[in-house]
């Protein structure tokens, strides 16, 4: 029996949700396992770096890498996987745009460490001990990966061939991606393996959205009840659907929550946050600066709202003065 195509999974700065999406293939995973050889998947099976190093360059058919790149270890591993793989797929929102971990780009590394190891209410650390990058024990030196200053999407570190969007990607998209890989009939490099149309296209509440939208206030889902029938944006809750790729089947809206934009923008858009901001703000009804500001105050954290998944991959990438 000829060798089955080799597939690698790896995770970087991520929550593990993308790995779950693999498991969420349910019985389809049997099909995957039948057709490919998973040669590296640290979250699920015991592999070492050296297992990857032993392959010839390009021997692995595809690596699906999820998570943003934040540490020297992640950088090292993805550079290694890049060398060994024919195709690298950014798997999920964090690998594609930095995802939730990318929001750390609003802060300095020091601010984050200080908070995590000293100031966070759940921390007891009177000596203010921090992890050491190098530590000598019994005459030998042990290393910890270094935290970089910037959270990066995968394609700012290595060349990426395809993207599977989502936080996490839907099993359907993942399955389609694997099928495409196995078919050998590969789409053009850089393709995002999801429909290139915004979420409203498949939103069950599309018909309830009015054509005369004019915002007089913005509401937050933690403070107000969302009408389960009507277009969520038209109720004044920021829904990123109009600026976000479809492909998830409007999962959040079906759970009566607004879309937060995890599938990223369409191919025509460089900066998802700027585009939804442009659309939503243009439809505010107020006309004077003061009145406009009063309405916009309903969105107290615009970066966290409009760039929830895409900050690290956005045009500005991070807070620029730190």
């Amino acid at each position: 029996m000829p060798d089955k195509p080799k597939l690698a999974f790896y995770w970087c700065a991520s929550c593990g949700g993308c790995e779950e999406s693999v498991v969420d293939l349910a019985e389809d995973i049997l099909f995957v396992v039948d057709n490919v050889d998973i040669i590296f998947w640290p979250v699920a099976m015991d592999f070492k770096k050296s297992d990857v190093e032993k392959y010839a360059d390009g021997e692995i058919v595809a690596s699906l890498i999820n998570g943003a790149i934040r540490t020297s270890e992640q950088q090292e591993m993805v550079q290694l996987l890049r060398r060994k793989s024919k195709v690298v797929i950014a798997h999920g929102a964090c690998a594609q745009y930095g995802g939730i971990p990318g929001l750390a780009n609003e802060f300095q590394k020091e601010e984050i460490l200080k908070w995590v190891y000293e100031e966070s209410p759940s921390i007891i650390n009177e000596e203010k001990v921090r992890p050491q990058l190098k530590y000598k024990v019994n005459g030998s030196e042990v290393f910890l990966p270094e935290l970089w200053n910037v959270v990066r999407p995968l394609d700012k570190v290595i060349d990426v061939d395809y993207y599977i969007p989502g936080c996490p990607p839907s099993p359907k998209l993942l399955k389609e991606a694997v099928l495409v890989l196995l078919s050998g009939n590969l789409p053009p490099k850089g393709t995002v393996l999801a429909p290139d149309i915004a979420l409203c296209d498949e939103c069950p509440r599309k018909d309830t959205k009015p054509t005369d939208l004019a915002f007089t206030e913005f509401l937050r889902p933690n403070l107000h009840i969302i009408d389960p029938e009507k277009c969520i944006l038209s109720q004044g809750f920021v829904c990123m659907g109009p600026a976000t790729r479809s492909g998830c089947g409007a999962l959040c809206v079906n759970g009566n929550m607004p879309c937060t934009g995890c599938y990223g923008p369409t191919s025509r858009v460089k900066d998802q946050g700027a585009k939804i901001l442009s659309s939503i703000a243009s439809n505010v009804s107020a006309k004077t600066e003061k009145e406009i500001d009063a309405v916009l105050n309903g969105i107290p954290d615009p970066v966290g709202t409009f760039y929830r998944y895409s900050l690290a991959g956005s045009i500005l990438r991070k807070k620029v003065n730190i």
């Binding site: 946050g273 700027a274 901001l277 107020a286 916009l296 615009p302 760039y307 500005l316 620029v320 003065n321």
Partner: peptide, 21 residues
């Protein structure tokens, strides 16, 4: 111009948060 003004008021907050004077 009103439509731009609204965008501008929103964008200014983002740009400010991201450290551009």
């Amino acid at each position: 111009n009103y439509k731009f003004l609204r965008r501008f008021q929103m964008l200014r907050r983002v740009v400010d948060s991201l450290g551009i004077e």
